[in-house]
Nucleic acid binder design. Structure first.
Lengths: 242, 242
DNA sequence: GAGTGGTCTAGACCACGAG
DNA sequence: TCGTGGTCTAGACCACTCA
């Protein structure tokens, strides 16, 4: 009977999940210490920690070293709508930080500029309550963004609007989406496990002259969001497929 | 000195990674048994297994119960291009299996049909060499797909073409992308760790009458692919944003 | 300093795969 | 049957947080 024998950690995780779902444990609350939980379920601490790791990987539990395990608030899901147009259902607090940086690494490739090119970095960090939620970085060549809209801590704002702010006349937007593990920086900033994948969206915006005017990098933790792209097919498109 | 002390599992994982990168261990090869590796690095088996878990989460190592740990072949990355149009760089072996199923669960919502509605399921499984690579399931109401193109094991085929085959006159394609953990079935089929996130693409195709004619579910393991969406902005779009 | 999680050990026993 | 990985135990010691 494979199903009933199923590992203890899963059984414990399931039990905690239902306790959370039924409201016996509420969002934001702290769980009993791992030692107490291990005693309650009569398992060893590593086993109990494995159970918590499952919940952590699902984004249900947030571990804080030295403090305890906390139930995350129900995930406000961001819906990122492609094409630079945002439809936000929720409102999150978004803070913006503007910095001057110089192109290096991937950025030079994405922006198609020489290494060292002056850039303006807009760092968006959205919060759901007191927990960090998602992260976006937008890079614009400095000659195109002469400190326009600088340091605006634009306050509460449409969540999906994070990336959805082309500031310049554009002709084409290309978005590349992949699932990957967070960088150490991202994991720390978002306070997520480094094993919880993020949905990474890279948006490259081109103006009417073909110049790349903006690169946006969005990291959306795990199951905390999705991206939606809608394509209207014209008659020519439909013919082209046949 | 936090960096140098950094956990043993990371040190071991780093060592194995470089051995793989430098070719000391080649793709497809089997690693020594976990007990032997543990002895070599003078750590306990759980610690060594933790190190392997890191590599497994990156898709570098594939564990096979009862056989051993194997180095994966370098990942052929799929580029899925949105809008139902595919641009494939690699060619993978794709096998198709056609089954008759009935709508239930999520499918009824996605297809907007009643539970129990007869559907045709096309199950695409692509292989890179002998390893499963990615997985797609396409569902079409049976009255729209009267066993058209049935059981075609279409052989070697553009990889990204997996999902890119609208069979009916369409007017709109909506694609939703998210990062999530694989279902147990997906993990087993793709032989990936259940902790390695997949990029999940759900494509809903609507015909000119507004009826949903096809739902496609693509699971792209971890860092093994990306999705690209390109939006051309017309002048009206640009005005609408201002 | 008390309490928490983070990491690791040195085993044990079970389940799977191949000969 | 034998070697493999899968799971678990019952501790130990370190690192972080907060009073």
């Amino acid at each position: 009977m494979n199903t009933s024998v199923a590992s203890r950690r899963h059984a414990i995780a399931d039990d905690l999940r239902t306790q959370i779902a039924t409201g016996h444990i509420k969002a934001g609350e702290r769980l009993p210490s791992e030692a107490q939980l291990a005693a309650r379920y009569t398992v060893s601490t590593p086993t109990l920690r494995n159970a918590l790791a499952l919940l952590q990987a699902e984004g249900v539990v947030e571990k804080v070293h030295g403090k305890g395990n906390f139930i995350r608030h129900p995930l406000p899901r961001i819906t990122y709508v492609g094409g630079g147009l945002a439809a936000s259902k929720t409102t999150l607090d978004v803070s913006v930080r503007t910095t001057k940086v110089r192109a290096r690494g991937h950025l030079t490739d994405l922006l198609q500029v020489a290494a060292g090119t002056p850039l303006t970095e807009f760092l968006y960090l959205s919060h759901a309550g007191k927990s960090p939620h998602s992260l976006a970085r937008i890079y614009v060549p400095r000659d195109l963004a002469p400190a326009a809209t600088p340091g605006e801590t634009s306050g509460p704002k449409g969540a999906a609007a994070l990336l959805a702010e082309p500031r310049l006349p554009l002709s084409e937007i290309q978005e590349s989406v992949c699932a990957r593990l967070p960088t150490p920086t991202e994991a720390a900033t978002l306070r997520i496990s480094s094993t919880l994948a993020v949905l990474a969206i890279t948006r490259v915006a081109t103006d009417t002259t073909g110049r790349i005017v903006e690169v946006a990098l969005l990291a959306l933790p795990g199951d905390r969001g999705e991206a939606v792209f809608t394509t209207q097919l014209s008659t020519e498109d439909r013919r082209a497929e046949g």
